[in-house]
Write a protein that binds this DNA or RNA. Structure first.
Length: 945
RNA sequence: GCCUCGGUGGCGGAAUUGGUAGACGCGCUGGAUUCAAAAUCCAGUGAUAGCAAUAUCGUGUGGGUUCGAUUCCCACCCGAGGUACCA
């Protein structure tokens, strides 16, 4: 009987769906296991073979855990708010909800083909109002919370208000805006309602703030750094400037230390922890105040605050540098310098932050004309601006110590500023000296002769005495901007009163659903797309959304026009899966009491400082407020690597419509263009007829051929529709089956690494499944047959060797080597002629997490009526593997020359004697006496000499 | 620039603690079967030299530690990912 994968796979997929085999129930007396893969954004292109890599790995682990007796929850859903659907809406006018629905249907069809053991009854979609109800709900709780640094957790705003009423804000130790004024209880009581609200906004965990953004006036929108190339928008090439905008922010900085400390408690990849650690960027140092001198007689003086990790080098300060965007730049600029400063500020507004960070070679800056007073020496310190200082970074100002910091050094050299040396016995002729450990301070008054630590403490003490500084811990982490000027995202449950202050709509009015709009573009006045809605006002009396023309700022108010960012919906989805239909809470106590947290989370490392940091922040917040039982939601995390595609390249002779075959280019000027890989045959030859039909630009093109064919170039790069190099899983399922695809994706290489895709290799794993099938069909006319007599010792050795390897490899997430060992197992059992149930039954279970359809089919043929999914994993028994002898590699000077079979119970001396007695040893030595013989019993013999 | 990961045959990769480099698979070559093909099976396959036994070289490059290095250390080259509004 043939291995008919089409029939087998569709039969078992139907069986699983009809029997709800993978439905996870709670409570349950079994131990729980929650396996989660990052849910996809359902793009219009559908799944390509790169997507399922992590899903397959997660499914294998989930199925393995079921065999181990766990009650497994493995859900799937869609991160369905996002830019591509909106972009498509702008181009075609089709509502993003329709695009999204179509795409989700397509994804579901493709996912169903691959045999995942998902509990589909728990599916979530972030764009579903039933779901974003709870995203909005979390936002509301953040709005109504503040961070108490004394209790070190978030609390409801009522405790803050009581504290204000009792003793003003000086007694409160809270995370708040830097510009929060001090007030007493009496002053608080005397404030108007609006004034109080304005103060509270400085404490809320989500608040309004002016933030720098990449503004593209032409497109009327904010762009990601990614979308800005050389100061212009990637789309359209319009100018982009840095601009301040009032936006919602999340006070994630309140959690900086806890997010850092929490990393020690979770089993996540070290590089990912490194990324978060660096992102949070804790550094210890001092904040120091430099007072500016009046720019003109009788003018004002300003406090310039800087943060430094090297307070010990304060006597080496020879100038200050401010970010061009620094608030005080206009005030500190003298008339003589104004023109130059303004030109420089404008020029740097056109450079992206990334550009400014990456470019260390070109040094630029301008003197403001102003001076500050050195806090300890009282000397005049010139104030410069330079774009190597970033506005959003620390205070946007640095005290420049050219002898101790390379960027300051380069800046000083370039502008011929003094470089005082404050290090004992160190030359700074060539470069700055930044070695903290080797530092001995000189030319620095009372700290001469001290090391880094001692000097830093002494300086901090001196600054504190003068009231011009203090020891402090600084975090690089910035509060997270939470507004997007987009349509296709969660609306904020917020309206604005006559004073422009934000108010929440009542909790029981959630969800606040996205309004319909005519156009998905920003409005002509530059407002976000929701500004196009005619019904986007809040009636505070009827508690409902109403028409804009009813806005009177008394009972009807304008609603927020921004929407939430992509990461909002993914920050609590893992908890929602536990209880997706709960209409009273994000997650019910019983559900989260049982499921607790995610045991295994698989996803890409590109989410390290986005989703994976924000979701930890929300979870900490939820924990503080008592809604979830654990601080960290994912105990273990694995990053899956990227699948790379092999693109096909054609070469267009510059300025013509003539294409040169790869071998004919020589030194001619050509442009490289990507063409669809499906137009290429196995010999890298292009199907010209198909190409002409593929895109109009090729219809009349000329082609210069080699040996009658057009040969394309190949380029390995990220698999993406953009490069026309995607390989679709549907065709593969059709030709080889889902089990083959699953095995092959795992067989390609280590899960965490990126690796190129090559469909040709699929036949290898497909052949393996055919061989496996044959092993169970050795009866007359290849009919199914297993024998009930005892398997041979050899059979058992092969089986148990494989059990051990498969178990160790799954637990170590080494899925590629499991597939190899299953292949070796089948090869060995085939040549041994094994037909025994003792061996073939456990083998089916070993295979089942990887190739579940064929395993179910064989399980049924073996006489079982229930699903193999819950069969107990075979027990490894050491006794089958005990060896009597070892084939020792015999090396000479580290090079293996021959092997020698010796009993394992020989002593070191006996082994040496046997080896020396061997004729081949004497031949290798050729009469020489060995200097040394190294014997490692059970491993190796090495003869030196 | 900075942080992180990676570099092993024609290709994907293996080598678990410093101990036989190249498991397993693809591809390729030769053979069996077949009228022929598909499918299947058998043998070979890092490079160079040699009829062969065998020898020399060989894990990005250059150095080092060691009886022994793909594995540890130092310096460098190349590629990929992230770098705060792509998801």
């Amino acid at each position: 009987m043939q291995y008919n994968f089409r029939e087998i796979e569709s039969r078992w997929q139907r069986f699983w769906a009809e029997n709800q085999t993978f439905r996870a129930e709670h409570p349950n007396e079994k131990p729980k296991f929650y396996a989660l893969t990052m849910f996809p954004y359902p793009s219009g292109a559908g799944l390509h073979v790169g997507h399922p890599l992590g899903y397959i790995a997660c499914d294998i682990y989930a199925r393995y855990k079921r065999h181990q007796g766990f009650n497994v929850l493995q859900p799937m859903g869609y991160d369905s708010f996002g830019l591509p659907a909106e972009q498509y809406a702008i181009q075609t006018g089709q509502h993003p909800a329709i695009t999204t629905r179509t795409n989700i249907a397509r994804y579901r069809e493709q996912l169903d083909q691959l045999g995942f053991s998902y509990d589909w009854s728990r599916q979530v979609r972030t764009s579903d109002p039933e779901y974003y109800h709870w995203t909005q709900w979390v936002f509301m709780q953040l709005f109504d919370s503040w961070y108490n640094r004394d209790s070190d957790k978030a609390e409801h705003l009522t405790t803050l208000i009581s504290a204000f009423e009792a003793g003003g804000n000086t007694a409160v130790n809270a995370a708040c805006d830097e510009d929060t004024p001090a007030f007493t209880a009496a002053e608080w009581q005397a404030m108007s309602e609006a004034e109080q609200q304005r103060i509270l906004l400085k404490y809320r965990l989500t608040y309004l703030a002016d933030t720098e953004v990449n503004w593209c006036p032409e497109l009327g929108t904010v762009l990601a750094n990614d979308e800005v190339v050389n100061g212009v928008s990637e789309r359209g090439g319009y100018p982009v400037i840095r601009k301040k905008m009032t936006q919602w922010s999340m006070r994630i900085t309140a959690y900086a230390q806890r997010l850092l400390d929490g990393l020690d408690t979770i089993d996540w990849p070290q590089p990912l922890k490194d990324a978060q650690t660096n992102w949070i960027g804790r550094s210890k140092g001092a904040s120091v105040t430099f007072r500016s001198k009046p720019v003109k007689p009788g003018g004002e003086r300003y406090d310039l605050e800087v943060f430094t990790t090297r307070p010990d080098t304060i006597y080496g300060v020879s100038f200050m540098t401010l970010a061009p965007e620094h608030d005080l730049v206009p005030e500190l600029t003298t008339e003589a310098q104004r023109e130059a400063v303004e030109a420089y500020v404008e020029a740097s507004a056109r450079r992206s932050e990334r550009e400014r960070m990456a470019d260390v070679k070109s040094i630029s800056g301008v003197f403001t004309g102003a001076y500050a007073e050195h806090p300890l020496t009282g000397e005049d310190i010139p104030i410069w601006i330079g774009d190597y200082v970033l506005a959003g970074y620390g205070t946007g100002a640095v005290m420049a110590v050219p002898c101790g910091d390379q960027r300051d050094y380069d800046f000083a050299k370039h502008f011929d500023l003094p470089i005082p040396n404050i290090f004992e016995g160190v030359s700074i002729e060539e470069e700055a000296y930044a070695d903290k450990a080797g530092t001995v301070i000189a030319n620095s008054d009372f700290i001469n002769g001290m090391g880094y630590k001692e000097a830093s403490n002494a300086v901090i003490e001196a600054l504190e005495a003068k009231g011009l500084g203090k020891g402090t811990i600084n975090y690089r982490l910035r509060d997270a901007v939470f507004s997007r000027q987009r349509y296709w995202g969660e609306p904020f449950p917020v309206y604005y009163d006559a004073e422009g202050l934000p108010h929440l709509i009542p909790e029981d009015c959630l969800p606040l659903e996205l309004p319909e709009v005519e156009k998905y573009l920003p409005t002509e006045t530059g407002e976000p797309p929701l500004g196009n809605a005619t019904h986007w006002a809040w009636d505070a009396e009827t508690l409902s959304v109403t028409a804009n023309d009813r806005i009177d700022h008394k009972t009807v108010f304008p609603l927020e026009l921004n929407t939430m960012p992509g990461w909002a919906g993914s920050s609590q989805y893992f908890n929602r899966y536990m209880d997706p239909d709960n209409s009273a809470a994000l997650v019910g106590d019983q559900a989260i009491g049982y499921w607790q947290d995610v045991d295994l989370y698989i996803g890409g490392s590109e989410h390290a400082t986005g989703h994976l940091l924000y979701s930890r922040f929300w979870q900490y917040f939820m924990y503080d407020r008592g809604w979830v039982p654990v601080e960290e939601y994912a105990k273990k995390l694995i990053n899956q690597g990227m699948i790379l595609g092999t693109s096909a390249v054609v070469y267009r002779k510059s300025g013509t419509n003539t294409y040169l075959s790869k071998g004919l280019i020589g030194d001619q000027q050509v442009e490289e263009l990507r063409v669809d890989v499906n137009l290429i045959n196995a010999s890298d030859e292009l199907d010209l007829e198909a190409l002409r039909k593929w895109q109009p630009q090729y219809a009349d093109a000329e082609f210069e051929l080699e040996d009658g064919a057009y040969v394309v170039g190949r380029e390995v790069e990220k698999m993406s529709k953009r490069w026309y190099n995607v390989v679709n899983p549907d065709q593969i399922c059709e030709e080889y089956g889902a089990d083959s695809l699953r095995l092959y994706e795992m067989f390609l290489g280590p899960l965490e690494q990126s690796k190129p895709w090559n469909t040709a290799g699929l036949s290898g794993v497909h052949n393996f499944l055919k061989k496996l099938w044959k092993l169970y069909h050795q009866g007359a006319d290849r009919s199914f047959e297993v024998l009930d007599d005892k398997a041979s010792a050899e059979n058992m050795k092969t089986l148990h060797k494989t059990i051990k390897k498969v178990q160790d490899d799954i637990e170590g997430f080494s899925f590629n080597t499991t597939v190899s060992s299953l292949m070796i197992c089948v090869n060995e059992l085939t040549s041994q002629g094994c037909r025994q149930r003792d061996v073939l039954e456990p083998l089916a279970i070993l295979l089942s997490p990887y190739a579940p359809h064929i395993a179910e089919e064989l399980w049924k043929k073996l006489g079982h009526t229930d699903s193999i999914a819950f069969a107990a994993f075979p027990q490894f028994e050491e006794k089958y593997l005990v060896e009597q002898s070892k084939e020792y590699p015999i090396s000479f000077n580290g090079k293996m020359r021959f092997t020698l079979e010796l009993p394992l119970d020989l002593s070191r001396e006996e082994i040496e004697a046997q080896v020396m007695a061997d004729a081949r040893t004497q031949k290798q030595l050729d009469g020489r006496t060995p200097k040394k013989v190294i014997v490692v019993p059970g491993k190796i013999v090495n003869i030196v000499g």
